[in-house]
């Protein structure tokens, strides 16, 4: 009796998502990016099954951050007061695939800046760079519901990736993202059941699932990366198993989480090595680890970490 072939193959795949709208499709982007499409686990199967290369979105804050460690901030001192220049630097000097504008400044506990400021930043960054944008809320539900719909409107037609929407706060932004033709980030707190539920909720509102990217929340190396890893892995396996509610590309926030780690920023730590190296290493290691679980878009901050991870991606997905 012949031995049956045991090659692993899957019925489902990760959705392919294209961000950005060029002139032909009613936007002003000079390029678009496409992610997703994997038909196997990372490293599994043939190269044809690997899908699109993962991409790196570099963070640009809407206002000057006052809590960034020196090793990180020194790369941006000249541009921190101008999100447009900051975005340009990330693209032209550091090789970012796209820009994630993070609206920290609108948070009531930070600078409590208003919608007019956020709209202005959005327009300026759109003007400054030709790549697609990610527009990311502050995390304060009430303020985000006031500001983010205006941000969405300001980027109408540009097919940005906007978020995040959560199980208990999704209606306002989902509705406006749908109206403005954007892609949407659904956000769950490291909980696969809630991740699925939020996708169902936005789908019930008529938002097309093929325009959704999931954010499962991220844990950095030493700070819960194992939870993030196993959830990303489970999401990928569910997608491959044909679960349409889990078949979205995934985004993770490596930059912010890695630079919260004390190992990244504590200068006075004998025996830990130079603080200038630790942060970028922490960030790159976190990113590379999560790439192997199956994430498609990584938010990052330090140019050296970005270079290391880009090199890794180019070697693996070729």
């Amino acid at each position: 009796m012949p031995v049956p072939e045991v090659k692993e193959s899957f019925a489902g795949s990760v959705n392919r998502v294209t961000l950005g709208a060029t002139k032909d499709s009613g936007g002003t982007r000079t390029s678009t990016v496409t992610v997703g499409g994997a038909r196997n686990v990372v490293y599994g199967g043939s190269i044809e099954e690997a899908g699109e290369k993962p991409i790196i979105a570099m963070d640009v804050l809407d206002s000057r951050p006052d809590d960034w460690p020196d090793a990180l901030a020194e790369n941006y001192q000249d541009v921190m007061d101008s999100p447009a220049d900051w975005a340009k630097k990330c693209i032209e000097q550091f090789g970012a695939d796209l820009i994630c504008v993070k609206f920290d400044g609108i948070h009531p506990d930070k600078q409590d800046l208003d919608a007019a400021h956020a709209v202005n930043v959005t327009k300026e960054v759109l003007k400054a760079v030709g790549v697609p944008l990610i527009l990311w809320s502050s995390g304060n539900d009430e303020k985000d519901n006031q500001v983010m719909p205006k941000v969405s409107e300001a980027a109408k037609g540009e097919n940005v990736l906007i978020g995040t929407v959560k199980e208990d706060n999704y209606k306002a932004l989902t509705a406006i993202a749908l109206a403005d033709g954007h892609h949407l980030i659904t956000h769950a707190p490291l909980d696969i059941n809630i991740a699925k539920q939020i996708n169902i909720l936005v789908s019930d509102m008529g938002f097309p699932l093929e325009k959704v990217v999931t954010f499962q929340a991220t844990g950095a190396l030493g700070y819960g990366i194992e939870y993030a890893y196993s959830i990303q892995e489970r999401q990928r396996l569910a997608a491959l198993g044909g679960d349409k509610m889990m078949a979205m590309p995934a985004i993770c926030d490596v930059g912010y989480e890695s630079w919260r780690a004390k190992e990244s920023k504590l200068a006075d730590a004998p025996g830990w090595g130079d603080v200038k190296d630790r942060g970028p290493m922490w960030e790159a290691t976190t990113a590379i680890c999560l790439l192997q679980a199956g994430v498609d878009i990584i938010r990052m901050r330090h140019p050296r970490a970005v270079a290391t991870v880009k090199n890794f991606i180019n070697q693996i997905w070729q």
Partner: peptide, 18 residues
């Protein structure tokens, strides 16, 4: 464990399997 639990698991079953 063939479908990931969500609060709407009954409702979503048919859509997820199409």
């Amino acid at each position: 464990n063939k479908q990931i639990y969500s609060d709407s698991f009954l409702k979503v079953y048919t859509a997820a399997n199409k």
